[in-house]
Design a protein around this nucleic acid. Structure first.
Lengths: 209, 209
DNA sequence: ACCTGAACACCGTTCAAGT
DNA sequence: ACCTGAACACCGTTCAAGT
């Protein structure tokens, strides 16, 4: 009996996936699918098929689809934090670092829009489930807090509670990113990045001493 | 043959739904379901069943599930705009009106969180589809622009392009609302409304002359 | 330990047919 | 015009069984 080759299946074989390899492969494949087809296009069957594995194999590593999405979101927060810190450090901190971090934020959201939506789609802090996700999200937040504390020491930022400041700044940039993703920021043909730059300048005024 | 009464079905009969009545009933029922069970809990079959109508009846009024959700989002933007304008006018405009509008914004988002998520879940401006939704969303935006123009005339707000200002303010409050919905704003046991108040104060500083 | 394949209970959507 | 009921092609998830 001839078995036709399945169209999307990878070369990898099932017996390679031991010792947690499959778990990582599942998260990566899910993230890739989301990047191409959006969250709505993510099916557990499709993920399994793409990896040449049965569609139920993933239940050995994740409780359900939500848990897989939480892992994807957690991974997203990790690379997100790295992008933010990298931008801050490359610009040498300070006022320039702050703008660079803000632009890196918006760029990440625009470049990985579907992934970003999963990160902020209501999974985080979903009743304390998915502790790894909460940790990664908190880590990204702490990167911002650290930057603000440094800016306070320089005298560029008002000496309010750093976490309160960070919540405000995060919320404001998050809002810009979300509206940019939704395509609601191109009213007068200005590119989203210019809008982001203007917003960051206003945020800087908002937190000035 | 005895027909057992279906559990969730309303009293209304199918023959009442003529001349567009069903369309409106479908939108209302979908909005109610979303409010109770979230977007994930919305099924076309459930909506039809709740109205005592076949599960395919809705295809006479909507192209597909997305179109129904767009109608729900549009309706959401309408009541949203009314809430914003009402808060602004009740406070008599000015600096107080601005704060009242901001608080009304966040309260609406927290009270109708699932509905709010549908409104900002990526349906608006989805390639120019759903013109009614775009119109309603634009209407809500214009309410904010109007308030800012009035504040500029009073000399409370800097004389930048009102639409650019409105985009920034909207984005910032939107971000606060989204993080509040996601439960990411209760770091130090402060209620979300206090965080919102602080954010609005900072936004006011950001757009000061 | 890890994976499979059949089965179950759900979906959204289509379509010929009814009034 | 508006609605129905059967049918289709999908889902996520469970579970006994295999290595």
């Amino acid at each position: 009996m001839v078995r036709s080759r399945l169209p999307k299946a990878r070369r990898k074989r099932a017996d390679r996936y031991h010792h947690g390899d499959l778990r990582r492969a599942l998260v990566e494949e899910a993230a890739r699918t989301i990047g191409v087809d959006g969250v709505a296009g993510l099916t557990l069957r499709g993920v399994g098929h793409a990896l040449g594995v049965s569609r139920t194999a993933l239940y050995r590593h994740f409780e359900d689809k939500s848990a897989l999405l939480a892992a994807v979101a957690g991974e997203g927060f990790r690379t997100f934090r790295l992008a933010l810190v990298d931008a801050w450090e490359r610009a040498g901190g300070g006022a320039r670092g702050f703008e660079a971090m803000g632009l890196a934020y918006v760029r990440f959201a625009l470049t990985h829009s579907s992934h970003y939506r999963v990160m902020f789609g209501g999974l985080v802090d979903a009743g304390g489930k998915y502790p790894e996700l909460s940790t990664e999200a908190a880590g990204a937040f702490e990167a911002l807090v650290g930057a603000l504390v440094s800016l306070q020491a320089e005298g560029i930022v008002r000496r309010d509670d750093p976490r309160a400041l960070a919540q405000f700044v995060w919320a404001a940039v998050h809002g810009v990113a979300m509206l940019a993703i939704d395509g609601q920021l191109q009213h007068q043909e200005r590119p989203a990045e210019d809008v982001a730059r203007y917003a960051i300048e206003r945020i800087r005024a908002a937190i000035a001493p």
